[in-house]
């Protein structure tokens, strides 16, 4: 564990707590892409299948359980209690391409052709693009609530900091895995426009609005 990874994990934790707070406080899931939330649920379920086969640490297990449980809870609540608060007509990104593309990528690019490893690799490729429906929805509406922008910033910073962690781990331990590194880079590049608007507007107290 190093400081980049710890802060990354805490940012990820914070992002979910901010999202839960947003939904509870505004009593609405407006502005949140259900499709992105569904993709994150698939990401965590497929990645943490090793929960039952590999023990790393209490920290590792607790975080995995939290990420699966919270993403499941959000998907469930968006379908139930908050169903009427968000508009599916705005959430029109075709996730079939993301689900299929990640499957193809994991079948071509993986380190071992085993059940667990293929699902783990699938989750890595899928996570890289899981934010696209959310970003697509925001580009259509042209704006976001400030709390939603904070949620997205924390979520984007998490994978961005993981990229820094991988460079640090390579330099200090010689540990290197190019698949998550590449996927983390792709995700960070997809976030570039969002980060720009976040730093230039939201951090200065203005509303998140696309030019």
């Amino acid at each position: 564990m190093n400081v980049f990874r710890l802060v990354a994990d805490l940012m990820h934790l914070a992002s979910i707590l901010i999202l839960l707070l947003k939904i509870r406080k505004t009593r609405s899931a407006a502005g949140i892409s259900f499709k992105s939330q569904l993709l994150y649920l698939i990401v965590f379920v497929t990645r943490y299948l090793d929960l039952f086969t590999h023990w790393v640490s209490l920290y590792n297990t607790a975080m995995k359980v939290f990420f699966i449980a919270s993403s499941g809870y959000i998907v469930y609540q968006m379908q139930r209690r908050y169903r009427a608060t968000w508009d599916p007509a705005l959430d029109t990104f075709r996730i079939e391409f993301l689900l299929g593309g990640a499957a193809v990528m994991s079948l071509i690019f993986h380190t071992k052709f085993t059940f667990l490893e293929l699902f783990w690799t699938y989750s890595i490729w899928l996570e890289a693009v899981a934010i696209l429906p959310q970003l697509f929805q925001m580009s259509r509406t042209g704006e976001a609530e400030t709390i939603t922008a904070h949620y997205l910033f924390a979520l984007g910073a998490y994978r961005g900091l993981y990229v820094v962690n991988w460079i640090y781990r390579y330099a200090t331990e010689g540990y290197w895995e190019w698949i998550p590194f590449l996927a983390g880079m792709v995700q960070t590049v997809l976030y570039a426009d969002f980060f720009y608007v976040y730093f230039s507007r939201v951090m200065r107290g203005k509303k998140f609005e696309l030019p």
Binding site: D50, V56, N60
Partner: peptide
């Protein structure tokens, strides 16, 4: 030896 790749990250 395990044929599984070890992942210690989240």
């Amino acid at each position: 030896a395990s044929t599984q790749v070890w992942h210690d990250e989240l």
